[in-house]
Design a protein around this nucleic acid. Sequence first.
DNA 1: TTTAGGGGTTCCAGCTAGTGGAAGGTCAAG
DNA 2: CTTGACCTTCCACTAGCTGGAACCCCTAAA
Lengths: 136, 136
Amino acid sequence: MNIGDVSARSGLPAKTIRYYEDIGLIKPLREANGYRAFREQELHKLAFLGRARALGFTIEDCRSLLALYEDKSRASADVKQIAQAQLDRIEAKIRDLEAMRETLSHLIENCAGDHRPDCPILEDLENGAHLVKASE
Amino acid sequence: MNIGDVSARSGLPAKTIRYYEDIGLIKPLREANGYRAFREQELHKLAFLGRARALGFTIEDCRSLLALYEDKSRASADVKQIAQAQLDRIEAKIRDLEAMRETLSHLIENCAGDHRPDCPILEDLENGAHLVKASE
DNA sequence: TTTAGGGGTTCCAGCTAGTGGAAGGTCAAG
DNA sequence: CTTGACCTTCCACTAGCTGGAACCCCTAAA
């Protein structure tokens, strides 16, 4: 299998696949002409990676997960721990974004959005500016 | 005011302040010894930037917002449009993260997390791998 | 006077996770 | 033989900083 086939079948761009080889996530063989020769094994791993990345795991998480995936005697607790850490990060991020959403949507609601210069959005940003600490 | 004072009063790291000067967001004067000489004006702008960045605006958004902030004849509609675009981005991101959270939390719930190798999390990632398209 | 410390300065490199593009080799079809 | 679709490597770039090296400046204490 050439990289184009693997790309089509895994859904990952060829560039990304080359990059994953670069950083050692996969190790495809080479044909005599220098082309990468992928086995089902690598295709499998790439799809695994695509799914894990879609769930927001970092590349380093993926490296660990892939190692556990290959290790048939792994403990599920190891996997669960990585997944739980990722879930925690996701939940923290959601909370951050929700706070931003609240602030922004209130500001937007209160902005006339017309030709006049009065704007509660800028006023709020400026308020940030007024929170500047006094020099002591 | 030296950079250390401005950093303390705005809450932004000195490195970040230098970076903001680098990319043209602020233009502090210079003292004879080469030190940056900040006026209240720049302190104000930096706090404005800190607030805007905390709300997730990109640097380029900040550049536009700062220009509008300085332009006393601006139309609030211009500001509102930038803020609305940002709100849309935030909401899209929240939706993405919530989908990830759902998937991950179900997987984690169903994983024993013990010494045994059976793990629904890896199975799901592997399922991604089974979604690989057949070569036609 | 020297020295120590705590400022400040510039510049270069690196982080994440790729993406874009140039320059060139390979292969099958017409 | 040429065209066009592949493939290769390598370098540069993205956002928004952050870390570190090497060096300058200023004050105060020994």
